Simulated scan of single mutants.
Amino acid sequence: MTITDGDVRPLPTVLSLWGAASRLHDERADEADIVFFTPPTGDALTCRTRTRSDESGRVDRTVGHLDTVGRLVAEVFLSGPVCTDGGRGEGVPLIGELLRSVAERFEIADVRRVRMRLHEHSALTGSPNWSATVLQRYRTDHEHAEDVALVGTDAFGSVVARAWVTVAVES
């Protein structure tokens, strides 16, 4: 999913960046951070990937998205334990649901950053219930923004995921 600006150039969104990053790994992501820096110049984005693993069994992957002049436009950070069975991890579908919740709540072009943390959710059946709380409103150098906390709970009320979303808003 991409959006277009007045020049009909594809711009990255939270969903398109997650799609590109999630195809690059088979780990169970329990943390993700997607940040937008600047609108891209040109039509195409290229990716630069850095992966780091440590003795504890965690893998950290950073996928930088660069525009045609080499500026960092957006970055996706993923972290989680290595999936030793060769299959896709359980965290990926829950992050996908969380991102769909973000897309349903906010104008996707206004999302500036999404930070996500997943909790133990082995007993999760069905979709979580999401609640949103505005944490703060402020003005950056060029726009008004607000930080919103999203909390996903299972049928028993246990927290399974948290997200912090920075979104541009009208003044």
Results as ranks from 00 to 15, higher is better:
145 A>H: 11
159 V>I: 15
97 E>W: 04
32 A>F: 03
121 H>Q: 12
61 R>W: 00
24 L>T: 04
124 L>Y: 05
26 D>P: 00
119 H>L: 12
155 A>Q: 09
65 H>A: 15
158 S>G: 12
46 T>W: 04
27 E>V: 09
21 A>W: 07
91 G>D: 12
48 R>G: 02
134 V>H: 05
86 G>C: 08
59 V>G: 00
57 G>F: 02
129 N>V: 13
34 I>M: 10
166 T>W: 05
96 G>D: 15
44 A>V: 08
124 L>C: 09
112 R>G: 15
65 H>L: 12
151 V>E: 15
9 R>I: 10
137 R>V: 07
129 N>A: 14
17 L>K: 04
49 T>Q: 13
138 Y>N: 05
165 V>Y: 14
19 G>Q: 12
38 T>A: 09
147 D>E: 14
9 R>N: 14
33 D>M: 01
64 G>K: 07
118 L>S: 07
87 G>I: 01
144 H>T: 13
106 F>A: 01
46 T>H: 06
125 T>N: 06
18 W>E: 03
3 I>D: 02
149 A>K: 10
41 T>C: 00
23 R>N: 10
47 C>L: 14
51 T>I: 11
10 P>Q: 07
138 Y>V: 01
9 R>Y: 10
13 T>E: 07
104 E>L: 08
62 T>W: 04
108 I>G: 02
161 A>D: 12
48 R>H: 11
160 V>Q: 07
23 R>K: 09
83 C>V: 12
73 V>W: 09
11 L>T: 00
59 V>P: 00
150 L>V: 05
70 G>H: 06
85 D>C: 06
113 R>Y: 02
64 G>N: 05
67 D>C: 07
133 T>Q: 14
121 H>F: 08
164 W>I: 04
83 C>M: 14
146 E>P: 03
126 G>N: 06
43 D>K: 03
166 T>S: 14
121 H>A: 15
129 N>M: 08
73 V>F: 10
68 T>D: 15
121 H>C: 08
14 V>M: 05
171 S>Y: 05
76 V>N: 13
32 A>P: 04
48 R>V: 03
146 E>C: 09
38 T>W: 04
169 V>I: 15
153 T>H: 07
111 V>F: 07
39 P>F: 05
40 P>C: 01
141 D>N: 07
161 A>T: 09
52 R>T: 11
36 F>S: 01
156 F>W: 13
95 I>L: 13
167 V>K: 07
39 P>K: 04
7 D>P: 00
85 D>S: 09
1 M>T: 12
40 P>N: 04
123 A>I: 00
42 G>P: 05
155 A>V: 10
162 R>I: 02
117 R>Q: 14
124 L>A: 11
41 T>A: 10
94 L>S: 10
101 S>T: 12
124 L>I: 05
74 A>V: 01
106 F>G: 03
86 G>T: 02
152 G>D: 06
110 D>L: 01
19 G>S: 14
79 S>R: 12
110 D>A: 13
69 V>S: 11
140 T>A: 14
91 G>E: 13
56 S>F: 03
153 T>S: 13
139 R>C: 06
67 D>I: 02
122 S>H: 13
30 D>H: 03
147 D>R: 10
127 S>Q: 11
165 V>D: 11
90 E>C: 01
134 V>K: 06
129 N>F: 05
103 A>N: 11
161 A>L: 11
148 V>K: 11
57 G>L: 02
144 H>N: 12
15 L>G: 06
127 S>D: 11
